[in-house]
Design a protein around this nucleic acid. Structure first.
Lengths: 328, 328
DNA sequence: CTGAAAGCGCTTACAG
DNA sequence: CTGAAAGCGCTTACAG
């Protein structure tokens, strides 16, 4: 390449990367030759020489669920627009209470930075990332001392409970608490706490038996809510910690012959892909915006070399549709 | 690292990679030192020296949709189990009729192989991949001369139509044909053709107005089917080319006061995440299995250096739930 | 503005 | 079985 352009490799490097100290004519000639030869610099050689890979790791507990897929998509777009690529790490294991752990050979000299999607890092993982001196931005579950993008879970839950209170409901249930073995995950904890606090704040009642464990899928939520809905001592409204669970609860109710919202109001959190078409009332969060915000924070660390530690809290919004209604 | 182990870098390299011609004692010592020092070989240096990156490109038109997210997840697991990483390329653009195109600097010296998820490659892209001598496995939309993993779309559609015929329906509609500007995508074409052929085969009728365009989302399908369902000259059953569209059609019917399956039967294709809980009849395909199969084919090309050109066709299965019923 | 040279951290024949 | 040396293809001071 340098040979056919009749210049040194150093000049080729400078011309192609748009550095100054190259005469316009030389630059133009180099660019033309590069074009002719389909020349593209080898990224592995560039990385070895420069020490930067222009790759970022995106780490998620699940890749298939809507929330995570939406984040990944938004992050990929933002990062690629700035010449970065993403390598994906799905941490899901077959069992629900353990996951793969981040290791040095996933990261070392392989990526310039990390975005975690709602993954609570262990102390060892935090140490590792510190030792590797990698910038990190967390979405959802925060990582101590690092930048974080999230919504205000407390506020979101309060909004949901308030909506039910406004409709006249006094007996409310909740689905989305999580067994002890996965208690390290932040979001379920936060939402449950916030739910309970809001119930008190608005003077409603929620019996312990009305708080249901579920694994955050629609299928499981349908199953896990059946017993409660079948009995006659039940709440008149249920808050689900995610729209997918809300969909499951509503289906369960319908199968038992309950009308929604006539006999039972159901509200979720997210504004999931199908929530609009299914007429589900929800507290909306803008997932793609969270992905973009995280990508931008990380890019700032990468390009300007100053690592931000901001906490970005994005707004949520009540969307009233057909799954909630006044107490009859 | 070599220094503290008291051996040459060549020996370290051989010991760590498990090559032969290293004495057991030496190997053990090297491994111990590596452990102590948290030593992990720099993948960029390894790649530059060996010419292999152990990274594969996964290329998808959309990352957020269930089908693609499920594939990505399965592929990532399979590949990582064999020491490979994936870098993700989402090709979606804001408009629906164009997409980003694969370029040399996405691939060159960056990945060892490619898996395409239902993306019809342009002639230029095929040329590029040929020129870079990259192995490629396609899922869904085939790439000429390359290995391909898919289901039998004709058979799947025939199964759906037959199910409706068995229930006594004679007037059937279809949703999921696609406007001319995206006609290059294979799946919608195949499914529409197969639907038409099956309608003839089983002696049913489908008027041209009963074939609806839609962009394969639930939301759009709900909208796109409204006019047809509102009229009184309509089919008694509809085949949707995807479950997400089937869900949209059913919601649309319900909102218009039609009972499903009393007034209208709806069947989809996929067995989408929510299809079971929503009681949707469908022709199931195993998406994760397609991802795993593609990963294995590519791995074979990568590890054994013989590129397979097999066509793997995975089975589909009729799952009858509550959205279809006998003609009343 | 441009080039020669060292260096990034590995792997791979080649000797021994 | 082990080591010295060349080479992978770039970037980056350093001279000029």
């Amino acid at each position: 390449m340098a040979r056919v352009a009749g210049v040194s490799v150093a000049t080729v490097s400078r011309a192609l990367r748009g550095l100054d100290r190259v005469s316009p004519q030389t630059r133009e000639k180099v660019l033309r030759v590069a074009e002719d030869l389909h020349y593209v610099a080898s990224p592995t050689a560039t990385s070895l020489a420069s020490g930067r890979t222009r790759v970022v790791a995106v780490v998620a507990p699940f890749l298939t669920r809507w929330f995570f897929a939406t984040l990944v998509s938004a992050i990929e777009k933002s990062l690629r627009a700035q010449g970065h690529h993403i390598v994906l790490f799905g941490l899901e294991d077959d069992t629900y209470d353990q996951r793969l752990t981040l290791t040095q050979n996933m990261l070392w000299k392989r990526v310039d930075g990390i975005i975690t999607l709602n993954v609570p890092m262990t102390a060892e993982e935090v140490d590792l990332v510190d030792r590797l001196e990698l910038p990190l931005v967390a979405i959802g579950s925060p990582v101590p001392g690092r930048a974080c993008v999230r919504i205000d879970d407390r506020l979101a839950l309060r909004t949901a409970v308030q909506h039910l209170a406004d409709l006249g409901h006094t007996k409310v249930g909740y689905i989305g608490s999580v067994p002890d073995n996965v208690a390290h995950i932040q979001t379920p904890q936060d939402r449950l706490e916030a739910f309970k606090a809001s119930v008190v704040e608005f003077g409603l009642t929620c019996e312990p038996a009305w708080i249901l464990n579920s694994d955050w899928t629609a299928e499981a939520a349908a199953q896990d809510s059946r017993d409660l809905l079948r009995g006659d001592h039940r709440p008149t409204a249920i808050v689900a910690a995610s729209d997918e669970m809300a969909i499951g609860v509503r289906e369960s109710a319908r199968r038992l012959g309950l009308s929604v919202p006539g006999d039972l109001s159901v509200i979720g959190i997210d504004d999931y892909l199908l929530s609009e078409v299914l007429g589900l009332t929800t507290v909306r969060q803008d997932v793609a915006a969270q992905g973009r915000a995280a990508a931008e924070l990380l890019l700032r660390a990468l390009l300007d070399d100053d690592e931000p530690t901001d906490e970005v809290v994005l707004p949520t919004e009540l969307i009233v549709r057909e799954s909630t209604g006044p107490l009859s």
